[in-house]
Amino acid sequence: MNSKKAPKTANQRHQRELKRDQHHAVIHWLVTGFVLLVLLYIIGYTFAAGFKNLSLNFFISSDFDRGIAPQLFNTFYILILSMIPMLLIGISAAVYIVEYAKQGTMLKILRFATETLSSVPSIIIGLLGFLLFVTNFGQGPRWEFSRLAGALTLAILNLPWMMRTAEDALRAVPASLREASYALGATKLQTIFRTVLPAAIPGLMTGALIVSGRVIGETAALIYTSGVAGSSNGWFNFNLIHVPGDTLAVHIYTLFADNPTPAAQQGQTATAVVLIALVLGVNLLGRFFERRLTKRFSGE
């Protein structure tokens, strides 16, 4: 406990403690300031490097090095495709956990499964997606690298997150609302559909938006499912299972993996700007709904 230079008197010791306390506070100010600066620098630097490469042409060109039109389309297409099953299953599962499941084995199993599944590295979910959707369990082809394969893989990857955020949203609905509904003679199903779910909508929106941010930003799980190909021709179609489709995030990776040329690096940073703007936008929108939710139930 005592350092080598132990102070002789209580007063010396006391003065040393006061000094230490001051240093302690200063160090914490500095460390936090440093962290914030670096994090802001990451975004600021990317914007500074990429912004000048943005042009209208960049958004509408489908040329691999010069534009991101196909990637933008694929990002939103895959986002929508993955959100449909995820919202349906995720919210339904959360309804079961919050409204039906009793404390016990079943709930424990579900908790264990969501926690364990959400800890699986995304590259492994990607390889599983390859096995299940791109190939027929590894025995010959099923679909090709395709946007549906990517979307379903992302749905598997993010289902635990969707369940967790939906569960939070449902739990935020006051029990008094449910009781009021039952007291009016509503059945459980009526209470869920007419009272609980409508009341949870802002919370569910928050959850869906935060998960959307993860879907938009995911890379590793898509490389072997929706593929890295940015086909310059014929990308604008809704074919689910025969056309590969790289998203913005995958595009940044591909530009790196295919021996970066100066043009590719410009494209990388410009794509990064668009990706950051999208993800931050989606997250900020999520926070907005979160605030509305607090207001609704606290009555402010």
């Binding site: 406990m1 102070p7 209580a10 010791r13 403690e17």
Partner: peptide, 8 residues
Amino acid sequence: PRLHGLAT
């Protein structure tokens, strides 16, 4: 006592 070094 440990904080204030009462046992030395």
